[in-house]
């Protein structure tokens, strides 16, 4: 059971994530978009979308810090457990609240604006459900365990297991005694990874950073040398 949840599930999700992206990129450039609906409704989006996105950036940054950077490294540079806990819980709570508020507004908009509602696809519905689950479970873990509760040092267990998965040395034993709420959060995150390539979330990989140094006006020949197929 433990192997199934903490070894098999992650690798299935990661495989779908990688293969799914390659497949979608090759097959569906036309569908690869943010699927913007701002022309249909902008009042709620104007508040909700920046909250959600900026909060999500912070949350993702926090997860990189918490999961990918080993505890030994932060301690080596003089960040002790107490300081880490303080920073991660406070910043994590703020980021989490932004994400929750943002997603709440965006979902409210989906329901209250008939125009936006009409453009919502099945893929959107699945995505919003899973995304909401991941976020709410994550918030419950952060606020419930680390802010109000005694705190849980996930860097000694979950982070080590997660890095193990990424380096193909998974140790399911590390996850055995992790609190249920963290377990559910992790599982829901794998579900999100598995549906990711089939949803509008693919627009994340198209973040237009290269725009910052591109020449303003783009010229293209009508008939490129070696026609693209």
């Amino acid at each position: 059971m433990s192997v199934a949840l903490w070894v098999v599930v992650p690798y299935i999700a990661l495989t779908v994530f990688v293969v799914g992206h390659v497949w979608r990129w090759r097959v569906d450039q036309f569908g690869w978009t943010t699927r913007t609906t701002q022309v249909l409704e902008s009042r709620l989006l104007r508040l909700g979308s920046p909250l959600f996105h900026l909060g999500a950036f912070a949350a993702i940054g926090g997860h990189v810090l918490g999961l990918l950077v080993p505890k030994s490294l932060t301690e080596a540079v003089g960040v002790d457990e107490h300081l880490y806990h303080l920073v991660s819980v406070s910043a994590g709570t703020v980021a989490g609240l932004m994400v929750v508020a943002g997603l709440g507004l965006l979902l409210a908009r989906r329901f209250t604006s008939p125009r936006v509602r009409r453009t919502t696809t099945r893929a959107d519905r699945v995505l919003f459900t899973v995304l909401a689950a991941v976020i709410l479970l994550g918030m419950t873990a952060t606020v419930g365990k680390n802010l109000l509760g005694g705190g849980y040092d996930y860097r000694a267990t979950i982070a080590v297991w997660f890095r193990g998965v990424l380096t193909f040395r998974p140790d399911p034993g590390l996850m055995a005694d992790v609190p249920l709420i963290f377990q559910l959060h992790a599982l829901s995150a794998w579900a999100l990874a598995a549906i990711w390539p089939f949803t509008r979330l693919v627009h994340v990989w198209s973040a237009p950073i290269a725009y910052l140094w591109r020449p303003y006006v783009v010229y293209r020949r009508r008939t490129p040398l070696g026609v693209r197929r």
């Binding site: 036309f30 943010t34 699927r35 725009y211 591109r214 006006v217 010229y219 009508r222």
Partner: peptide, 22 residues
């Protein structure tokens, strides 16, 4: 995204539907 471009031959401005990310 660099999806919009001006054609060198005739100056027509177009959107590459495969590269537009919305």
């Amino acid at each position: 995204s660099g999806a919009m471009y001006k054609r060198e031959e005739d100056g027509i401005v177009l959107v590459d539907q495969d590269r537009c990310r919305g």
